[in-house]
């Protein structure tokens, strides 16, 4: 097919001009750097609205500037044109187009249960100030992780959201919009990552003292890797040396499980933590008993520094 008007070069030129601008839009939490169909549809909506809004603003300001120019005699201005036309008709037409487009976009992003989709269902339970993720049906039994949610790339995922305490907002900007996790409610967010990769998530709804630090990660795997990763998590954790196991059980074990097959107590499940926080663990444990300010850690006997280091080394093995 031939393009008589030479259009093929235009997007390239536009891309060249926009590249620095769009480059500034990249970032681990950037809604303008979409990596999934939901975020992409919304980003497209944004760019369209930005251009439209900029033109309207410019038009209004030019008209204002024109109106403020000094002149000798008053002018006749048609009320019908100014108010009926610019004030009512123009926004009415523009907004109708926008509303229809917005509703259609929104409808496409909903977690509909249509035939072809086969979404993976996972759960995300918010609590002050971390997320617990549940894979309700992996090989017949649920799996639990904290802080990291594993999903397959290229397949829609329905995240069922709930909360154990206050309202939290589940948000992975590069994949989809956000949705609140509300105690007493169950909400469902559809998201999808087009490529394997790591996507940052944040809590969007103010949820108390450590709202800021309630971050999490979504790791999208190629389908085969995804099954492999969950299988690895479903395996029993490596055995610790007896003293380490005893020290862990005496303190940490009251709240934290190290086995993805069992639900953790009050604290996050540590399965896979060696992969999630490589290298950070000794420093984190050294700040024991409060590895992060604001996190609620019950009083318990704290092992000495040497034992903490050994526990950290053991946790490194939970991968």
């Amino acid at each position: 097919m031939r393009f008589v008007h030479g259009t093929p070069t235009r997007p390239a030129a536009a891309g060249f001009l926009l590249a620095p601008l769009l480059g500034g839009c990249a970032g681990p939490l950037s809604a303008l750097d979409p990596a999934g169909p939901g975020a992409a549809a919304i980003a497209l909506l944004w760019w369209g609205m930005l251009v439209g809004a900029a033109l309207i603003l410019l038009g209004v300001l030019l008209l204002l500037a024109h109106a403020l120019r000094p002149r000798a005699a008053p002018r006749r201005v048609s009320e019908r044109l100014m108010l009926g036309g610019a004030g009512v008709l123009f926004p009415l037409v523009t907004l109708t187009v926008l509303l229809v487009f917005a509703l259609r976009t929104g409808e496409a992003l909903l977690p509909h249960r249509s035939a072809g989709d086969r979404p993976l269902v996972v759960e995300a339970r918010g609590q002050q100030w971390w997320w617990e993720f549940v894979y309700p049906d992996f090989a017949g039994a649920p799996l639990y992780t904290a802080g990291t949610l594993h999903i397959p790339a290229g397949r829609p995922v329905d995240v069922h959201l709930s909360s154990r305490d206050v309202i939290h907002g589940f948000w992975v900007p590069r994949l989809a919009g956000k949705l609140d996790a509300i105690p007493g409610h169950r909400t469902v967010l559809r998201l999808q990552a087009d490529q394997a990769g790591t996507y940052a998530g944040a809590c969007a709804e103010f949820c108390g003292l450590e709202h800021t630090r309630m971050t999490f990660t979504i790791v999208a795997h190629d389908p085969a890797d995804f099954a492999e990763r969950l299988t690895a998590l479903a395996a029993p954790p490596p055995a610790a040396e007896p003293e380490v196991a005893a020290a862990f059980a005496a303190g940490c074990g009251a709240c934290h499980s190290t086995d993805a097959r069992t639900r953790s107590g009050a604290g996050p499940n540590l399965a896979g933590i060696g992969r999630r926080l490589p290298g950070d663990l000794p420093a984190l444990l050294a700040r024991h008993p409060v590895p992060r300010p604001g996190h609620r850690m019950p009083d318990h006997a704290v092992p000495d520094a040497a034992m903490l280091a050994r526990i950290a080394a053991y946790l490194e093995e939970l991968r």
Binding site: L63, A67, P70, G87
Partner: peptide, 23 residues
Amino acid sequence: MLVAIPTAVQIFAWIGTLLAGRP
């Protein structure tokens, strides 16, 4: 979205007043 329209009417009434007068 609709609420933009009465707002726009006021904006254009103000601009129109300036346009018609000698500001």
